[in-house]
Design a protein around this nucleic acid. Sequence first.
DNA 1: GCAAAGATTTGCT
DNA 2: GCAAATCTTTGCC
Length: 207
Amino acid sequence: MLIGARLIREGVDGVRAGKIVEVEAYIGVDDGASHARFGRTKRNARMFGPPGNAYVYLVYGMYHCLNVVTDSEDRPAALLVRSVQPLEGADLMRRARTELVELRSGRDIARTARARQRVIALPDAALASGPGLVCAAFSIDRHDDGVDLCDPASPLRLEAAPRGEAPPDLAWGPRIGIGYAVEPWRSRPWRVWAVGNGSVSGKAASR
DNA sequence: GCAAAGATTTGCT
DNA sequence: GCAAATCTTTGCC
């Protein structure tokens, strides 16, 4: 179970850590919503790799998404990490988010200033509440594609929740942003989140 | 070789 | 509530 596990980024600036509170599953070449539905390509090659590796890709030209490969080689399956609840290094996450803002706002100085101010004012819980935001907050991009997230020596890695920590109550529903997929894949309830957690992305907070 | 759309987020109408 | 920003990948000519 990935929900409740820790996502950790160690850098020269310090450590960022958070609890995973929302994921989506993309399973097999049959899944009409998965990148693997067209078979193996240059972009999705990591989905066909060994489990525990990261599959990172760029969407909409500006946001990265982090996936954890979950099945054995040649069986493409992955969990998209949609939301993380910050536990440590929130200041570093906020700074990383600010850098993304400047990239996105272009050279409109006034707009950039407003956007940066808005990021600075964000509560910690909102720093990684979305798949693109997780990668922004943890400075994840495609050079992290293929890293072994289960290697304790990796600067970007996963760790199990501490022993004794109560597992969160879970809810599930249809995946987000896959309206292009046909049934039954579009409605398959393969998005799972921690009930009532303030870091779950947007509309997903329901129930 | 070119057009179209995407596992998103933000800001304006 | 809708469109923009932006670029990689897919799909068709």
